[in-house]
């Protein structure tokens, strides 16, 4: 079943003793066609899991690069229906790479929770991260999503203390996303040493794979985090490739080549460690 794609992915990587590379891109950015081409090219470039951003007018937890990408996508006529269509088209060629939708609650709420979950599951969506739905509101979407066979992946942050963590984990499945810094996407990352310590703290509470994200931009940074994390998430740096390119085609190619670099680094991480 589609919901187990994430579990199978982490199981396979555990056997290879390496971390997953999770790439975030905004659906519909720079336009539908190039966004779909990026999606299609990511697995071959080395992405193990794809987070697909659902554009929203008011992305309160995002920094400038992802805000801009969302605005551009929406201005180009992108919407929730088209995001799901993009996933459906991707699944025609790819049955194994997990896709996690990431976004804000309002577009899902307006689409209708039940209808959204039906359509997402049918399109081949494996999981969801909804930034503004804390565990206090699990009945809104998290519980129905799990019933529909879609993982609900929760964020844990530096402000999620030991008292709160179990509550955050209760309905989380697939993996846990550790946001390594307070702040919006695209802000600077703390030192790897600090993140490693935090991760140890979190692992005392869960056996779920833990992904680390926020502020990871380069291959060396990804390599460092991949030594101890179960997955490394890169988002703003990829989205910026598109913003900085002269053409849409160039942007697409730059996203895929950065993904290749990141993938190589993630694959190297623990072998380097074993040698040294």
């Amino acid at each position: 079943m589609s919901a187990s794609r994430i579990d199978r992915c982490f199981e396979a990587l555990r056997q290879q003793d390496r971390a997953a590379l999770v790439t975030f891109v905004t659906a519909g950015y720079p336009d539908y066609q190039h966004s779909a081409e990026i999606l299609k090219g990511l697995p071959e470039a080395g992405a193990d899991i794809i987070e697909l951003g659902m554009p929203f007018t008011d992305p309160m937890a995002d920094g400038a690069p992802i805000q801009l990408a969302s605005q551009r996508a929406l201005a180009g006529g992108h919407n929730t229906i088209k995001t799901l269509q993009m996933v459906r088209e991707f699944r025609e060629h790819n049955q194994h790479t997990p896709i996690v939708l990431m976004g804000y609650y309002n577009p899902i709420y307006c689409y209708g929770v039940e209808r959204f979950l039906d359509d997402a599951a049918a399109s081949g969506v494996d999981g969801m991260i909804v930034v503004d739905l804390p565990p206090e509101h699990d009945n809104e979407l998290c519980v129905p999503a799990r019933e529909a066979g879609i993982h609900f992946i929760r964020l844990a942050t530096p402000t999620t203390d030991a008292a709160r963590l179990p509550g955050v984990l209760v309905n989380t499945s697939g993996f846990l996303y550790y946001v390594s810094s307070t702040g919006v996407t695209g802000s600077a990352a703390p030192t790897a040493e600090k993140v490693e310590k935090e991760l140890a703290r979190i692992r005392e509470h869960t056996n779920l794979p833990v992904a680390v994200g926020f502020g990871i931009r380069t291959a060396p940074q990804a390599e460092r985090i991949a030594r101890f994390a179960d997955a490394v998430v890169v988002g703003s740096a990829l989205v910026e490739c598109i913003a900085n390119a002269d053409t849409e085609a160039q942007g697409r190619d730059d996203v895929l080549s950065l993904t290749r670099e990141l993938s190589a680094a993630v694959r190297e991480a623990r072998t380097t460690l074993n040698v040294s």
């Binding site: 509101h137 942050t157 955050v168 946001v179």
Partner: peptide, 12 residues
């Protein structure tokens, strides 16, 4: 109403 905020803000 409710408290629809990111996890980082929830403890605050």
């Amino acid at each position: 109403g409710g408290r629809f905020v990111a996890e980082t803000l929830m403890p605050l």
